[in-house]
Design a binder for these strands. Structure first.
Lengths: 216, 216
DNA sequence: TATGCACCGTACCGTACAGTACGGTCAATC
DNA sequence: GATTGACCGTACTGTACGGTACGGTGCATA
């Protein structure tokens, strides 16, 4: 009936039974199902079945369906940020812009991110903080990196713009293009690497035409 | 048990009882509830209650919840297209571009469109054709109008670009900016007219810098 | 006044799902 | 060999919803 003894040491969360691997397994299954079928479209029984376990275990690790979902989103956002930081090169300005543009397009049109946006957008009314997590972990990260690069380029005269942040936004907007909206609405499949590259190159070229200082 | 006599004249749809006004009333209520709470989040009982009617009547006008939802989307898409065609002016190029950019931003960040995208995105897996309807009725319409204007401007030398359609897409991408994504994720409220105007002006200015022919 | 019809109100059916309860199994630990 | 605890399997509760059935009401027309 009542808890007689408190657990010896509280872990990062409330007292929980099992191993971190088990938790990761649950999250992996949840990832697969939630991203495929959405939040409402996925039942906890389904998660348990796919896990090869029982609902009891599920609820031992996560207090509710919502809690599991939020943990999943948190997890995925962390993964996203990490992915965006891949391959920071020490090359010229154009190459660095290209790398970021490519990474940004790749991320933002990937099946995972698109599904996340689709689901988070649908839940935006009830849980805007999840949308915020996504934005901070994805687009905001790209924007920060890009702003820094642009600011440096403005400082040494390679670029010309009033506001580095606004300029960075311009490049990302050009990079997204219509790809993103069409992806969100399920009108096109995940673009291949060639398409991503073409979009990134076009965006960077346009950006440079906008922000290259006119030769004096 | 069986239908003995067919109705005298089939209306635009299958034989249906009541008036077009009644249908419109149902759609109005459905609009309010579906856009506010989403498809799964809205129950037919709720629609009937808000209507001040009964579920029986609801199902007399629409075969299923899905049918009602699709009718609503169709309805809203038609309204959207109409809205985009407001105020075609006979002014200079820049003013015409500005008008379209403003109309596009206003539409694509409006509460109605954002809610529609949020809901349609969530349903994109199961019913991509609804997403297509939205795209065709909104963004594609703006793109068509803009392409025509850009093509004409290229023809008479006012603009310089290889592909008018691609150029038009560039303008729309610049216009959307980050506003759209943040709106989708529920991070910012509907922008006011001043914000819309500022975004439109910036987008058009950048577009013209990209596509103005360099003086020979 | 009688007939038909759109509509209301309500009760109902079948199903699906979140969350709980509980007995039993297996492995590690003591 | 006994205890502990994570876990399974299953059954269960309560609730919500899509959709149907049906008797009754009020208005229109014949």
């Amino acid at each position: 009936m009542s808890h007689l003894a408190a657990p010896p040491i509280a872990a990062t969360e409330t007292r929980r039974p099992g191993s971190a691997e088990r938790r990761a397994m649950i999250l992996a299954v949840a990832h697969e199902l939630f991203l495929d079928q959405g939040f409402e479209g996925t039942s906890m029984s389904e998660v348990a079945a796919r896990l090869g376990g029982s609902k009891g275990t599920l609820y031992a690790y996560f207090d509710s369906k919502e809690a599991l979902f939020e943990a999943l989103i948190t997890d995925n956002c962390a993964r996203m940020s990490a992915q965006l930081f891949e391959g920071p090169e020490d090359t010229g300005l154009e190459q660095r812009l290209l790398a970021i543009a490519r990474g940004y397009i790749r991320l933002v049109t990937s099946d995972m991110a698109v599904r996340m946006i689709q689901i988070l957008a649908a839940e935006a009314r009830r849980r805007p903080e999840l949308g915020r997590m996504f934005y901070e972990a994805g687009p905001a990260v790209a924007l920060d990196r890009l702003s820094a690069i642009v600011a440096a380029a403005i400082a040494d005269g390679t670029l010309d713009a009033d506001d580095p942040r606004l300029a960075a936004e311009t490049l990302l907007s050009l990079a997204r293009g219509k790809l993103h909206l069409k992806r969100m609405l399920g009108q096109i499949p995940e673009p291949d690497e060639a398409t991503i590259d073409a979009c990134a190159r076009r965006a960077v070229a346009q950006f440079l035409r906008l922000c290259r200082p006119i030769a004096p």
